[in-house]
Design a protein around this nucleic acid. Structure first.
Length: 878
RNA sequence: GGGAGGUUAGCUCAGCUGGAAGAGCAUCUGCCUUACAAGCAGAGGGCCGCAGGUUCGAGCCCUGCACUUCCCACCA
């Protein structure tokens, strides 16, 4: 045996992964008789290194995948990376900025080349880290959202949607980020509370001295005003219906229009309308056929229409305009006002609503099917009942999806414009037919598609779509989608919509959502806060399995996982415990009985641990099937540490040293060790493989392809398990007495029990060892015992007498027993009152009543025995 | 404004369809007992957010309220 004395994961992790990979263990086959289990890895962005969130994803998915593979499924976990349009372009632009350049200095082609270089670099880093985490991905099937086949699939989807009339081009008011210089979808805009001001501005009614006051947060947009609106029911303004007002100092005349939208209670009840720069005003503008004036350009500066403010930023323009208003006596007052500020979710630049030509997808039809799929439980969400409402609500109120982005990095939109007449043709390639106008030259749309457009296609493109591959047939729909709840709209909903649209089938059967990783105080981890826990630092220090086990044990958390290095360190102790216990089991292997039959064991101790193993295996499998990895971890932890180590190993020592029992016990030690490793393997793959290889009764060349344990009900013996509880109680009670009296030496104990005398005799050896006793006598009644110097303890059907004349203090002892009696009496009263209650007897279930009766008997006996013990002690005092 | 969570030991959290309040960490005490001091043994610590209700019985179900986190939403 060549195990180091300490758990040193760095010594074996890398090599083990390499071995698995080279042997092709991760690969699932396209055609197989086995049931399939398929899942796609949410493709990481190629923008940087992996963080704790990725570590969580890899842990959860790998754990689920490994168990399925061990259970005999034809398992494929599809790897890939995402080109992440805006995010990646930003990273590269930042790099350029350091050299004092912009992407325009390079030009589109050179810039894209540079992004590819960055992609190659990051792809290597990401892949290495993913492998380090132990992820058993089917690397032969790796994809990238911009690879050639993927691009073809994207074009196919675009064209099909266009042909169905679901994609259209139009001029709309969209959210524009001037820093990224692109349109954004609603989801890419974040609303933050912000401090603003409400400016009250006078608009004079044409040809009169009368004025109305409007309240606005953005006075600079008055340059683009094309109306002032009031509520038709508002009596204050009745006399102004049909009149016109003049925009201060701009001197443009605009109509007063009537619209129910205006809230009479808010502000002045009088609203300026700027259809070119405000979403509400845009809707009103359309309704009333108002002119739409754009006064802000794509760089966020005032444009030609803003005449003498041209070239100023919106902020500068606002200041100048306020001065002008002041000079004209048009500024009535300024109030502080809490507003919401819309920002680009990538770069936090304030969003400007701008009119522009963009591509959109009509969503309502697809959304209806997607709602239906979840409502009819074709797709199930886990944890159940958590995210369905959120999902429905978004889809029910869905708006058309703006899919064009004015970026250079991404899927170029497959649309071609005639150079001469600008008519467009939707086509993957440059059209070879001349345009209707006779023009022969075309240029491609310069925009690219939203990253999530291609991401939505992962489940069917990974296995080969649009080709009709065998892999597609076998692995679609996926068995599971596992992802963060934060991208439920961005990704999950859209995959469901696209899957139903193009495959006419759901993309996956189950969706498992995990929480967000935060620091120990609940704050989001970020570089600027400096509270990031780097998975690489952690795995170097504690090992991959430690991190995986920590994350798995926290995977059940609702929305936040508060991670601290402290908790990780705690679980590293568990890994060490496994290592140390293995050392014991393996170093005691010599002489184990090779022919031992686990169903025909002789010794109760061995029967007990096999029973427990099977009970726990049953629990673990159930928890696994419900995706409750935290419960799986907990069961593994408790069983191994607090049953196998604390009791079985300790109890086995005398048996191992006795020739008669050694063969069987050594075998059981190894057997439970081996089966535990298998149960544990999905979560902690490396240490389990390492130790499995050392186990002389290993039954496969690798643990990862061995069979995942199933519970054998015939080997579960509930009676024995409860009996063993009594033995444990006995030991604990003796330890307790010795501890409070400070008795360290080995001493003598007499136990009186009619019911358990045989049981206790069976376990005498181990009890002597664990309770540090010299002798243990078992009697059937107490008459033979000299009680004068005995410390006593009582448990159901067992009385414990510890002769300890030199230690016993009668007062203290009486006090101790009285405290116990108090607790028992209270329980007794509660149980009695239940059974005396006619309502309880009439309405409670039979099993419950039986249980209560059992409790009553137990408590009564304990109560009596404690009272008698106290009485005896009291006679000694007198 | 709408929606979804959370509130249980000092901390982080379990408590399944109602049937004697749990774990880990931390704390305190004693132990180097030949797998493990990254360990072993023992102990202390809870108006289960508040107020009502349903029930024989509520941490769990119902109704309010408070505090808190997160989504979604066009009130100038």
């Amino acid at each position: 045996m060549d195990l180091s004395s300490k758990y040193e994961p760095q010594a074996f992790e890398k090599e083990i992964y390499k071995n698995w990979e080279s042997k092709g263990y991760f690969h699932g086959v396209d055609k197989s008789d086995k049931p399939q289990f398929s899942i796609v890895l949410p493709p990481p962005n190629i923008t940087g290194a992996l963080h704790m969130g990725h570590a969580l994803v890899l842990t959860i998915q790998d754990t689920i995948v490994r168990r399925k593979r061990m259970q005999g499924y034809n398992t494929v976990w599809f790897p890939g990376t995402d080109h992440a349009g805006i995010a990646t372009q930003m990273v590269v632009e930042r790099e350029l900025m350091k050299e004092g350049k912009s992407r325009h200095d390079l030009g589109r082609e050179k810039f894209v080349e540079k992004v590819w270089e960055v992609r190659e670099r990051h792809h290597g880093i990401i892949t290495n880290q993913t492998k380090k985490m132990g992820a058993s991905l089917d690397w032969e099937r790796e994809r990238f959202t911009l690879d050639e086949k993927f691009s073809k699939a994207v074009n196919t989807v675009f064209i099909k949607l266009y042909e169905k009339g679901l994609i259209y081009r139009g001029e709309r008011l969209i959210s524009w980020c001037s820093r990224c210089s692109t349109a954004l979808s609603d989801l890419e805009v974040e609303q933050n509370p912000g401090k603003g001001k409400l400016y009250y501005i006078k608009y004079f009614v044409s040809g009169t001295k009368e004025f109305v006051t409007v309240a606005t947060t953005r006075p600079e947009t008055l340059l683009g005003d094309t109306a002032v609106a009031v509520n038709p029911k508002d009596k204050r303004f009745k006399h102004l219906h049909g009149k016109k007002v003049i925009i201060p100092f701009v001197e443009r005349e605009v109509p007063i229009i009537l619209d129910e939208y205006v809230d009479m209670e808010f502000g002045t009840g009088c609203l300026k309308i700027t259809p070119g720069h405000d979403f509400n005003d845009y809707e009103i503008g359309k309704k009333h056929n108002l002119e739409m004036i754009t006064v802000i350009d794509k760089q966020g500066k005032m444009n030609d229409a803003a005449v003498r403010f041209k070239g100023l930023s919106t902020k500068e323009a606002r200041e100048k305009i306020l001065v002008e208003l002041e000079n004209n006596g048009a500024l009535e007052k300024i109030e502080d006002y809490a507003t919401t500020v819309s920002k680009c979710s990538r770069c936090e630049t304030v969003i400007e609503p701008l009119l522009s030509h963009q591509w959109f997808i009509k969503m309502d039809g697809m959304a209806k099917r997607a709602i239906d799929a979840v409502k009819k439980e074709k797709i199930k969400f886990y944890p159940r009942g958590w995210w369905e409402e959120t999902y429905y609500r978004w889809l029910e109120n869905i708006r058309d999806w703006c899919i064009s982005r004015q970026l250079w990095w991404g899927h170029r939109i497959p649309v071609w414009y005639c150079d001469s007449c600008n008519q467009y043709v939707v086509s993957e390639h440059n059209p070879d037919k001349p345009c209707k106008c006779g023009g022969k030259a075309y240029h491609q749309d310069s925009d690219v598609l939203d990253t999530w457009f291609s991401a939505a296609m992962w489940p069917f493109v990974s296995p080969g779509w649009p080709e009709k591959t065998q892999a597609l047939k076998t692995f679609y729909p996926n068995a599971l989608m596992e992802t963060g709840f934060d991208i439920i709209f961005f990704w999950v909903a859209r995959m469901i919509m696209f899957g139903l649209e193009f495959m006419d089938d759901i993309p996956f059967k189950d969706v498992l959502y995990h929480a967000m990783i935060r620091d120990e105080t609940g704050q989001k981890m970020s570089k600027t806060r400096g509270n990031v826990i780097d998975p690489l630092v952690i795995t170097d220090k504690y090992g991959v399995d430690t991190l995986r086990f920590t994350l798995a044990s926290m995977a059940g958390r609702a929305r936040d996982i508060k991670l601290s290095e402290n908790s990780i360190e705690g679980y590293s102790h568990f890994m060490n415990k496994i290592w140390q216990a293995s050392n014991f089991a393996l170093s005691n292997a010599e002489g184990y009985n090779k022919d031992c039959d686990i169903s025909k064991l002789k010794y109760p101790l061995n029967k007990w641990i096999i029973s427990r193993l099977n009970s726990v295996t049953d629990t673990i499998n159930k928890k696994f099937d419900a995706y409750e990895l935290n419960d799986v971890s907990e069961s593994l932890y408790k069983f191994f540490w607090h049953e196998y180590c604390d009791w079985y190993i300790e109890f086995s020592k005398p048996l191992v040293n006795d020739e008669a029992s050694a063969g069987e016990t050594k075998y059981v030690l190894l057997y439970v060790h081996r089966e535990f490793l298998k149960l544990m393997h999905p979560i902690a793959p490396f240490v389990t493989e390492r130790l499995f290889q050392e186990n002389p009764i290993k039954d496969h060349e690798t643990i990862m392809l061995d069979k995942y344990p199933e519970s054998n009900k015939k080997l579960i013996n509930k009676e024995l398990e409860t009996d063993f509880d009594t033995v444990q109680e006995l030991v604990s009670n003796i330890r307790h007495i010795k501890s409070i009296y400070g008795i360290n030496a080995k001493n003598d104990v007499v136990v009186v029990s009619a019911k358990y005398s045989k049981l206790i005799n069976d376990f005498t050896g181990p009890i002597l060892k664990l309770a540090t006793l010299k002798t243990l006598k078992v009697e059937k009644d107490a008459k033979t015992i000299d009680l004068t110097g005995c410390i006593r303890a009582v448990l159901p059907d067992v009385e414990i007498y510890m002769p300890a004349k030199e230690f016993i203090e009668f007062d203290k002892e009486i006090q101790r027993l009285n405290k116990k009696l108090e607790v028992v009496s209270k329980d007794l009263i509660i149980t009695k009152s239940k059974l005396d209650n006619a309502g309880f007897l009439a309405k409670a279930g039979d099993d419950v009543i039986e249980k209560e009766k059992g409790k009553l008997a137990e408590f009564s006996k304990l109560d009596l025995e404690l009272r008698s013990a106290i009485k005896t002690l009291e006679t000694f005092i007198k």
